[in-house]
Nucleic acid binder design. Structure first.
Lengths: 349, 349
DNA sequence: GTTAGCACTCTATCTCTTTGAGTGCTAAGT
DNA sequence: ACTTAGCACTCAAAGAGATAGAGTGCTAAC
């Protein structure tokens, strides 16, 4: 493996990504920076094929990168430009939404932006709510025997659910149950709100308060929502524009997107590129998936990535993913400010 | 136009819908209930073609229904079976969700179920929130200078939004603004909550309260959400399975689904079938769209429909649409009970 | 180690032919 | 007057060669 062979491999990948056609020795030879004849390129390509980095669709066609070829290109050969400053600003603007910003919204915006920019499907598996803290619990009467429980987290998420009781609460009862819930839940991290803990909570209620158990049940459900990861999937339609992806497989993928979670949640660090053929059956042939983790308070709390054709401009897409995951990590790890915090002084009224 | 010609037209439509192939005179003649020779069928078909109900892809092919052909079939010839009882029960079960049921949820379930059952894309344009009444407004402190406004409607929807103020409110201030908002908004129909009215509300605030204007702004935004119709679009993927729909056009449609609203909101009554070619540019070729209105308190408050290939089993799909629109009308027009009402006695605490 | 030259391979494309389903028309039958 | 069998006709779809050309591997010269 000499320098030139690697250069040729890179050129084949880039040329194939650009045109979608198998690339021949002549085009490569004519590229600036090669400076050898087509025959020489042919020899090198034959070698690269033997090594498993290139393949021919048929004898008289040009070469196409294999998965190993792509992998080598991505890991060693590709230039990894970081995004230019103005581009970064543009992205930052896409992420910033008007109004108070919650983590939830931030991650939604990022998903949409990523799909838009890469023209791929963007997919995010977000566990971050799990690592936030209940900052407020409220019970609000909302009609005959109906009460809304409201949960606000340190990440700025506001969740509500209507619960039906057997009877109406008096003001005293309402105050009683509100205080009880506030006392036991505010300041507790979402992660700790296990089913078990919620059951203990019910158990801790006096016989008198047992009639208000549906409220606890409601909170239980809300916290289950928070603990479970959220899977976001945007820009699916982009996948239908690619000739090399099978439309039916795309439909399958969209319908079984839940199964992607397994791939997304695999533990790894940095940026990972996966190829359809290599992975589980739920990924499309000829596709690749580029994933990165984002972090919060030292934990991996989510993965974000894109799914696109294997023939993808990695040098363009990877910097996007890198930037977004870094940016999200920065933003959600920030010392919570204003709207998304409940510091000790003001938590208890 | 005699009886037999109509029977033949119906047979052609049904056969074409079943097989997707142009249908010839021989198949029709062999169908039970026809009882004449292929030659006779041929003569009749030639006549039907002259009248514009059938056409031939090319001279030596069978016949395919034209749009007029489909229309005649749907309006006059098709048997309109209503759904069998057990099927109705099954649908009712799909609509019923566990837990307190809101109109919003009901309509979401209906959309999903419709897409599932018909294997088409289901689309719903829902104006019903506009015709509900604000039953409760709450302001809840949620952190430093951040307050959540909560709006509950008679339809059972619960909306919230975080607002940021310039400073923290004292308990008295909170009570003041809460009372003020409750007094001016509870019992008011969402439809009446125009921008104008909200501005008047701000104007009616004392100079002292002006600092709390962001809360009104927040409510304004929530009410805008409620007033604007919601467009639901489910089962898009189903469209990719149909050979006769152009994949690219489907992508276009999905990306510009907002434009469908214009078609959905056209005023008409009963069930309406539209064909791609006839309508605006945003509908796909070879597709048809079946829409019905649903009502609440005497108004049309929404449209629900499916988009599928023109070659669709109308006799199966139309009854579904009919049943769903009737069912939704019944359910949302019901005297609001329990969770989704705020009757006078208990509205004001 | 590199390169020009050349025979070879194999797909994509084109044309030509064949096949067969389906028609329209005519003439006979009821 | 309507129906039907028969038949010639049409035309898309499928198949069979034939052709062109892009790209290769190999050899021999540089």
């Amino acid at each position: 493996m000499n320098e030139r062979k690697l250069k040729i491999l890179a050129a084949v990948v880039e040329e194939y990504v650009r045109t979608g056609e198998p690339v021949g020795s002549k085009v490569i030879a004519s590229l600036p920076g090669i400076g050898v004849s087509a025959a020489t390129v042919r020899n090198d390509m034959a070698m690269l094929e033997q090594l498993g980095f290139l393949e021919q669709p048929h004898t008289s066609a040009g070469r196409v990168p294999t998965i190993s070829g792509y992998r080598l290109y991505i890991e060693e050969l590709m230039s990894h430009p970081s995004l230019p400053g103005e581009e970064q600003e543009r992205l930052d603007k896409m992420l910033a939404d008007q109004g108070p910003m919650t983590e939830e919204l931030l991650i939604q915006n990022a998903t949409t932006a990523l799909a838009e920019l890469t023209q791929c499907a963007a997919v995010v598996s977000d566990f971050s709510p799990k690592f936030s803290v209940i900052s407020k619990v409220e019970v609000i009467p909302a009609g005959k025997r109906v009460y809304v429980v409201l949960l606000i987290t340190s990440a700025g998420s506001i969740k509500n659910k209507a619960c039906r009781l057997e009877f109406d609460l008096t003001n005293e009862q309402l105050a009683l149950v509100s205080d009880f819930l506030a006392e036991h839940l505010e300041g507790v991290s979402v992660e700790e709100l296990s089913e078990e803990r919620m059951q203990n909570l019910t158990a801790a209620m006096s016989a008198y308060m047992m009639t208000m158990a549906p409220l606890v049940e409601g909170i239980c459900e809300l916290s289950r929502d928070l603990r479970h990861h959220a899977l976001l999937f945007k820009g699916e339609n982009n996948l239908f524009s690619y000739e090399d992806l099978d439309k039916m497989e795309v439909v399958q993928l969209i319908e079984h997107k839940d199964e992607l979670v397994q791939l997304l949640d695999d533990s790894f660090s940095g940026i990972r590129v996966m190829f359809g053929e290599d992975e589980g059956s739920f990924v499309i042939g000829n596709s690749s998936m580029i994933v990165s983790k984002y972090r919060k308070g030292g934990h991996n709390v989510g993965s974000l990535g894109v799914i696109g054709p294997m023939r993808l401009d990695y040098a363009k897409v990877i910097p996007y993913i890198a930037y977004f995951s870094q940016k999200i990590t920065d933003l959600i790890s920030e010392e919570p400010s204003g709207q998304d915090s409940m510091t000790d002084e003001n938590r208890k009224e």
